[in-house]
Design a binder for these strands. Sequence first.
DNA 1: CTGAGATCCTGTCTGC
DNA 2: TGCAGACAGGATCTCA
Length: 269
Amino acid sequence: MPELPEVETTVRAISGFENSILEKIVIHNRSLRWEVDKDLEKLTANKRIYKISRRAKYIIIKLDVYSLMLHLGMSGKLRIQNKKDNYFKKHDHVEFVFKDKKIIFNDVRRFGSLHITKNINDHPLISNLGIEPLSRSFNKDYLHALTLDSKLNIKKLLMDQKKVVGVGNIYASESLFLASINPLRPAKKISLSECDDIIKAIKKVLKQAIKMGGTTLKDFYSADGSEGYFKLELNVYGLEDKPCKKCKRKIKRIVLGQRSTFFCENCQV
DNA sequence: CTGAGATCCTGTCTGC
DNA sequence: TGCAGACAGGATCTCA
């Protein structure tokens, strides 16, 4: 489900819990993408939260010695709830309990994960990640070097988290539309100036999506319960057979690497 | 090393 | 209405 803007939106929604004391973590179902560490509850009881941040699509919660890494997978979301409202929803797996409130991790499909580790950057799921798309070092030269080295088509390359993080299926399609690049193009054949177009498009799309609270297609809600309104800005994603906003021809849907991919054959070369 | 395809899981929607 | 099949915001793993 969530790509960088949705994760960022979620992080911002729970940032108010920084400096709060996490009384305890209650786990109802350890069987997520990976089995949750048996010692996690013990290691996190009555710890202050120093920092809540994002790396790639991971939510990082820094305690004293340990940090938590939470990935929302395809269907995960957080929900802030008053502690006294003691209700549960189906697929509530983890509760982060504070003095008056709790944050609940709900994940229908259980592709999400929760890890505890001392040093985030040494964790194997983090250490091999590519660079942040909104950082300065994500620029045309960086991307061009990657493309020259790759046999993938450009869309698959952009979604490869080892190369650049945070771009998922929606924003890959949307960025390539803005950059007027066909998603099927072999990465190798993308010129430096086209790389520049792609970089600018990705940054623009991600920033705008964050501003609008992410994209709610059907069931993404931020932790405060609000929807993301970037859906209204989508140009191609989920719009098969609808008229292209530039040329009015029909948007095409194809499958690349088992993922739906939307683009305009006329505008994207 | 790279890249393609299968796979994890539950729910919803479409078409017969 | 039932039922099969496709599809869903991700990313790891297995194998060539």
